[in-house]
Design a binder for these strands. Structure first.
Lengths: 205, 205
DNA sequence: CTTTCAAAGTAGACAGCGTCAACTGTTCTG
DNA sequence: CAGAACAGTTGACGCTGTCTACTTTGAAAG
């Protein structure tokens, strides 16, 4: 039975892996269950034993991306200094987006499968968000100059900014914009400085 | 001849309008030239007289979105006060994204048709970006007490943040996050405050 | 006014897709 | 050992994009 479960898990796993690679090569819109089956070497119906339909497979792929993303965010060394750790979190976020544009796009760029229909995928997405939010909560707990500071609000702000930076930096339109590379290289550190300054500031009531 | 050119322009125009509405109803992945033809009331091949293929139609739709976006950004009254105008630009940006989520998604969310292949679309996108960047550059030029301040860098920061806020605010995952609506209502003003604070701050060398 | 000719629209065909139904074989269970 | 659960195969259906070949049309040229 061990053999069987291994075998079945293999096809399932293979499909997910192959799906991601197809998306990378031919784009999301050209992902087809039949092509997956062909590459894995099974009949065109075999994947349906493991995924209800195309969207279920896609949800699984996206879920894996969130897993990898969360893992990446977690596997950093923490210094204990909240400011430092926050910066490192931001760096990790951007680095992942830039180094894994395909996966990042799948998670945030394209129109996802409806999260309501895929609770497993949704949970993984929420987990990734929770990492960011918890980190900021800690930051404010340690750095309690701002008593009334609402970590959720700032988590949202930081998250949005990181996401915006990541998206804009690798937007296909950007490559064609009249922006010098040297300026582009400064853009990210500059934005990080701005965010740091923003979070330090006392806000008016 | 006027009549003819009107007529043909009508089918072309009708296709674009219908395409957008199909995307709104059934999603981008369910946009089909055949359905467009059906709704417009012509044979399944008629649209091919006006669009080489599905992607060309889509590029045209996206181009129109950029046009509308540019127009929206332009039609604001300026007060002359840089800080005020900057805030108003930010608001205009976010407002468009929130009021026209479908169009905004098409421009920035989904995987676009390859810009290299559709120079007309690309040009419109660059024009919209130029508006944004020019306004920001001007505002910062008028604004910055900081000597070495590079307006381009701040423009980039603000643009990315606005884009991030817009995207995250209407991301489907957001609706399912454990965030109360009241908090969500505060999120945007809070982020704007943070951005304002960020831009006011003196940055370390 | 008639001819002509390109553009616009129609009709049919083809392969590829997602997915349903029915079948075969293999493996675990009672 | 019987049989049920499950993985995989085959075939079919209607949908899609797009090719080719046809017909209509309406403006311009003679």
């Amino acid at each position: 039975m061990a053999k069987k479960s291994t075998k079945t898990r293999n096809l399932r796993e293979d499909c997910i892996v192959e799906a991601l690679s197809i998306i990378g090569e031919d784009g999301l819109e050209n992902l087809s269950l039949r092509e997956v089956a062909r590459r894995v070497g099974v009949s065109h119906q075999a994947p349906y034993k493991h995924f209800e339909n195309r969207e279920h497979l896609l949800a699984e792929v996206v879920g894996r991306c969130f897993d990898a993303f969360s893992k990446h965010l977690h596997t950093r060394k923490l210094t204990g200094d909240p400011t430092e750790d926050l910066a490192s979190l931001g760096n990790a976020y951007i680095r992942y987006a830039l180094n894994h544009p395909l996966e990042y796009r799948l998670m945030f760029g394209t129109s996802l499968p409806d999260p309501d229909k895929y609770p497993a995928m949704l949970e993984k997405a929420q987990y990734a968000y929770a990492i960011l939010r918890d980190m900021l909560t800690q930051l404010f707990a340690a750095n309690s100059r701002q008593k009334g500071a609402d970590a959720d609000l700032d988590a949202f702000f930081v998250w949005a900014t990181m996401h915006g930076l990541a998206t804009v930096l690798k937007s296909p339109s950007l490559a064609t914009l009249p922006v010098t590379p040297s300026k582009l290289g400064k853009a990210l550190p500059h934005a990080f400085q701005r965010v740091r300054a923003a979070l330090k500031a006392d806000l008016p009531a």
